[in-house]
Design a binder for these strands. Sequence first.
DNA 1: TCTCTCTTGCGAAAATTATAACACAAAAAA
DNA 2: TTTTTTGTGTTATAATTTTCGCAAGAGAGA
Lengths: 212, 212
Amino acid sequence: MKTMKVPEATISRLTIYSRFLEQADAKGILTVSSTDIAKNVGVTPAQVRKDLAYFGEFGTRGIGYTVKDLLKHIRKILGLTKIWNVALIGAGNLGRALAHYKGFAKRGFEIKAIFDVDPSKIGSKIGNINVYSMDELNEKVKELDLRLGIIAVPAVAAQEAAWALVKAGIKGIINFAPRSIIVDENVILRRVDLAAELEVLTYNLQECKIDA
Amino acid sequence: MKTMKVPEATISRLTIYSRFLEQADAKGILTVSSTDIAKNVGVTPAQVRKDLAYFGEFGTRGIGYTVKDLLKHIRKILGLTKIWNVALIGAGNLGRALAHYKGFAKRGFEIKAIFDVDPSKIGSKIGNINVYSMDELNEKVKELDLRLGIIAVPAVAAQEAAWALVKAGIKGIINFAPRSIIVDENVILRRVDLAAELEVLTYNLQECKIDA
DNA sequence: TCTCTCTTGCGAAAATTATAACACAAAAAA
DNA sequence: TTTTTTGTGTTATAATTTTCGCAAGAGAGA
């Protein structure tokens, strides 16, 4: 494995490839070509091969890629060979929804504890996950081996939540609050802004209108 | 305004800048410099200026940008000067969560109708939004002037939902299902894969472990 | 008025990312 | 066995995106 820097975009695409491979595997397909993958996910075959080439040689010339093998390799590259325990901050609408979302567990991410500041929520359960006070975060992170954090609190509380997670030793955070937050540079932070996605759509739709 | 092609990344950043400007405005701050914005959202000042320069000259040398003015300009650029009505497909956990999410309405996106195939859900309400049968999609799109679509159905149903939206005349779609879908090329499609975001985190965390 | 500081806007350079081209390996067919 | 087809991995080329450097405008203070 080369020490070459892998583009962020490549990693995102790997996750997309893995979705397709899961489907193909479920259908009983044994091998796929870079063209098959490319067609299904909407990129060029060259892009698929280049993305995979960052990590080694997984295909066979003239044949393509063995679905199960490639899937296994990608999962290993992405660090998905084990279960990751997740701390969810915020038991509001969004937090509850994420707690119920089956897609996380299906891919090895288990929300083990939910934290909130609202006394009326603390002590309750969402699904079968306990809601704890923010004061218990440090303790629970250790006790439950929580590695990742999801911030699903209102914008004004997001930065505080982030600091709490960092302080508790969490090294990877996803922020759903519509606000930029700062963390230590040894912590990986990603932002998911639901309204922002819609805003990009409206920008593009406007453009089209101008073209026409 | 030049006909120059604007990078997709620039548009995403504009939405982030606007979040910061909203906060600044709420705090009563009148002007900000590109450095102020950059510090808060984690990019370089040059990047901020370049992004804005695609659309015109909004700042004053020596002073910076007037918060209210810049916010207004960005909102206009993104097409956020009017209300956009949204069709939500899928009344499951994720769909219900999105229906309750306040952040959409706050930014001018109003989910006006929800559609599902499950007879037990059709006719019910989520919040104060009606759940309709998929058969009623075409009709409701016209009646309620729905312009955008959000797909929040299981992976297997995603493509079908997309086709239905396109057929009904929707031109902008966000797909939350963990599966690539295809639409006409005159339709704008964006993908939000929640588990994928976590997977990028785990990739990066692995990397760090190798570095150390 | 003149100077000093601050900060934008813009063109050019640098870095990054994607696309295209090609040589070669494996399998299937003749 | 030889030829043809398929499809990888790699190298080269092109396009895109970001960063840099600097001229010039605007206000503050002497």
